[in-house]
């Protein structure tokens, strides 16, 4: 169980003024649950992931995984692949997996399963963008993460490549039982991936709406059911994607409508 309770997170902006990125944000994620966080750009989604991932510890509140601070078995996938250009594909994955022979064997098996067996000794600079993301995905899963944080990891990829990566992600997630917190601004992607989608307001981000998705997997962002769900959500909550708090003052807790 991932338990997030952020009272507030401030940082100074360029003019030296204090900017509140997050405020009164509470979110609980069951162990093994896949939660997507959607919000307008600049609302503090990435800040939230940085706090959960321990990249930023300067905030008021607490973040716990099963009662403790998120520990070694936390994976992180960033917007860019962020591979070490001076390490080969296998070494990039082994960098986080550990030095022993069994870790290396695990890394190799994982890369082969992800159809990267032919490029184990290639430097990342020679791979396509899609392949680099696949390596980054392998790096995230080689540690068999209890918690995986993903910050728009499939942005700026062509549609077939992105879909292939999403299929791989869901496959790995189902096998590992990882808890996933996935940030995106693409509602279709969120609806296709998640068990539950959380919509955030514009900064300072608070929760606007939570929506559980009961559609069976596999799903794709282009599926008709996803489009229907998207249309219904937008109809019921027209201000959702602007990040504005609805003027009628609807409660921001669990949504009533289910697909």
């Amino acid at each position: 169980m991932l338990d997030i309770d952020i009272r507030h997170k401030h940082y100074p902006d360029r003019g030296g003024h204090i900017h509140t990125a997050l405020s009164a944000l509470r979110l609980s994620v069951r162990t093994g649950e896949f939660v997507c966080v959607v919000g307008p750009s600049g609302c503090g989604k990435s800040t939230l992931l940085n706090l959960v991932g321990g990249l930023d510890t300067d905030f008021a509140g607490h973040i716990r995984v099963d009662g403790r601070a998120p520990g070694e078995r936390t994976g992180f996938m960033f917007q860019e692949p962020r591979l070490m250009p001076w390490l080969s594909v296998i070494d990039n994955v082994c960098l986080v997996a550990g030095k022993d022979a069994s870790a290396r064997k695990r890394a190799q098996a994982l890369l082969e399963a992800m159809e990267l067996g032919d490029v184990l000794d290639v430097y990342p600079g020679r791979l396509s963008g899609g392949m680099q993301r696949r390596v980054a995905l392998a790096r995230a899963f080689v540690i068999e993460p209890a918690l995986l944080l993903m910050d728009e990891p499939f942005v700026s990829l062509d549609r077939p490549t992105a879909n292939r990566l999403r299929t791989m992600l869901i496959d790995l997630w189902q096998r590992c039982g990882t808890t996933v917190l996935f940030v995106t601004h693409d509602v279709h992607e969120a609806l296709a991936l998640a068990d539950r989608v959380v919509f955030l307001s514009a900064a300072p981000a608070t929760m606007l709406l939570e929506h559980r998705i009961d559609l069976p997997r596999p799903r794709h962002p282009e599926d008709e059911a996803i489009s229907h769900l998207h249309a219904r959500l937008m109809q019921d909550h027209p201000t959702l994607l602007t990040g504005l708090v609805p003027p009628t003052g609807q409660p921001a807790d669990e949504d009533a409508l289910h697909a």
Binding site: G54, G75, F76
Partner: peptide
């Protein structure tokens, strides 16, 4: 700093962080 964040996110030990992520950038 983005590569250093990778090292931090995966909680690499300080020596590994220095020798395999920091130093190659300084080479």
């Amino acid at each position: 700093p983005r590569l250093m964040q990778v090292a931090q996110a995966y909680r690499l030990p300080p020596l590994t962080r220095f020798s395999r992520v920091y130093l190659p950038q300084l080479t």
